[in-house]
Design a protein around this nucleic acid. Structure first.
Lengths: 281, 281
DNA sequence: TTGCTCCTCACGTCACGTGAGGTGGC
DNA sequence: TTGCTCCTCACGTCACGTGAGGTGGC
């Protein structure tokens, strides 16, 4: 039997840690004096204390340590799992740091914001319900492409083929929980309510003659092309656009259009984030 | 100007985090309503908010984030330093896990404890003052070897050459802060108080006829040979020795001798941790 | 008897999250 | 008017470290 101080010295744990482990039930003193509260530890407890120390040094939490102590036969497995978790966390942090450096570099240098005037433009859109927080999965992406293609074909068949690159806009729902994505094609002629496409919910309208501010997010940009991190930081281009709107005295509440940009091969190579800054003076 | 909710949405930070950052002075709202306490944020603050978010995602603490924001020109340097710190911490944890696994494996299987009887043994020792917490530096090690050698030579010259392998014992000082290391040679004849060696403080005595328990820590053991980790966990052999003493009904307070073990070439290859378990029955 | 150890609170750490309870703004 | 947002406490997290103030044991 040893006092807490002797046991602390022998085990390499602090007396405070020993009291804490006792309180948590991880390492109960061999006996506790009823009157004085003095804790007494047995030499046979040194093994457990040493294991706790080693496991804590590995970075395990106390519940994890307890799990290992409760399942000595699975010790190796649990330790290996912990090592893998640590490695995974480190890899994730490394990636966050690399991505963060790129983002900060983008914030550091001015991002080009183009301003231009645009003529009135009729459009037709397919409406899709989406959850805004949902990640951009492969399946969703295919769904969008199919809807765009079906709408384009129907417009072509109606003799009112798309008159330029498509765009999308997002309308948050009232509850902010889900929302609607509009997949828009510009058309030469406004369509009437009699234009329908099987399986698609349509909407249509006309963008008025207007001034616009645009930033181009290229798919060559690693911040755009990289595998989508969950809940990413604002892209430098979006920041630049916000600041442009601010300096122009416009609130950011206007509708944002994401206009597809194709290269000469017709493959998507960028997206133009486009906001209306006002009517033509 | 935006409400905290709008700004939170735009920056990707939570309203709670924004309040916290305001409280800490990291990101002060553009204005705070005197009456209602409502916070208002300006679009121009989005850049700072985005940077905070990115830096936090990298795993920086808020003081570190503040340092980066205060020194935008050193941003790259500070981020690189953070990355290196993270990598260093991870490497240290990886090493702790590897070392811990080896230690746990040692705890898992029984460690051999030898018991034996030993005859009475006169000894002479050089006394060195040491700080017990101090790491085993190169310089200290050389000092010990020099003292051992000087003592052995003097004994030889006095016709009382070492009669076996050397050992060391450690006596903690009264204050527990420093202590004394005894470097001992066994001798055939007890020495008198007239035996002195220049530059060495000597002590001498006789080990009585006794029973001993011994564990051998081999230098081949990675737990023994590995670079000395600061404040290492108890070696499985020491644990086994403690438990042996416990079962034998002996407290662990007896003097511990660390006896050098040489291979056939005369180079040190192990150390025998030796404790007295009692007189010969 | 004097130090030393041991005891039990209580508070601090770090960056917020999670309610509780109440009010302002559309 | 009803919801919704916003406000300010206050508490919890994790594994102890750091005193404060008081007592037991040699």
């Amino acid at each position: 039997v040893m006092t807490i101080g002797q046991f602390a010295h022998a085990s390499g744990l602090s007396a405070k840690a020993l009291r804490f482990y006792g309180e948590k039930g991880l390492l109960i003193p061999d006996e506790v004096d009823e009157v004085t509260g003095y804790r007494r530890y047995a030499p046979a407890q040194l093994r457990r204390a040493a294991m706790i120390r080693v496991l804590r040094r590995m970075g395990m939490s106390l519940p994890q340590v307890g799990e290992v102590l409760d399942n000595p036969d699975r010790c190796d497995e649990l330790v290996a799992r912990h090592r893998d978790e640590v490695a995974t966390r480190y890899a994730a942090q490394e990636e966050a740091i690399a991505l963060g450096r790129a983002t900060l570099a983008g914030y550091d240098k001015p991002f080009p914001v183009e301003t231009r005037t645009a003529p009135a433009q009729p459009w037709v859109a397919a409406v899709l319900d989406v959850e805004p927080g949902a990640p951009q999965t492969e399946g969703e992406s295919a769904r969008y492409n199919a809807a765009f293609a079906a709408l384009a074909l129907a417009l072509q068949a109606a003799g009112n083929a798309p008159a330029g690159p498509f765009w999308t806009t997002f309308h948050a729902g009232d509850d902010g929980f889900d929302g609607q994505l509009l997949l828009c094609w510009p058309v030469s002629q406004p369509v009437g309510p009699d234009f329908t496409v099987d399986g698609l919910r349509l909407r249509h309208g006309v963008l008025p003659e207007r001034r616009e501010a645009v930033v181009r997010l290229s798919f060559d940009d690693p911040l755009v092309a990289g595998d989508p991190s969950p809940d990413p930081a604002p892209h430098p281009g979006l920041l630049a656009l916000m600041e442009h709107l601010d300096e122009a005295g416009r609130a950011g509440g206007d509708e944002v259009r994401q206009v597809g940009v194709l290269d000469e091969d017709g493959t998507p190579c960028a997206v133009d984030i486009t906001v209306t800054t006002g009517p033509i003076a």
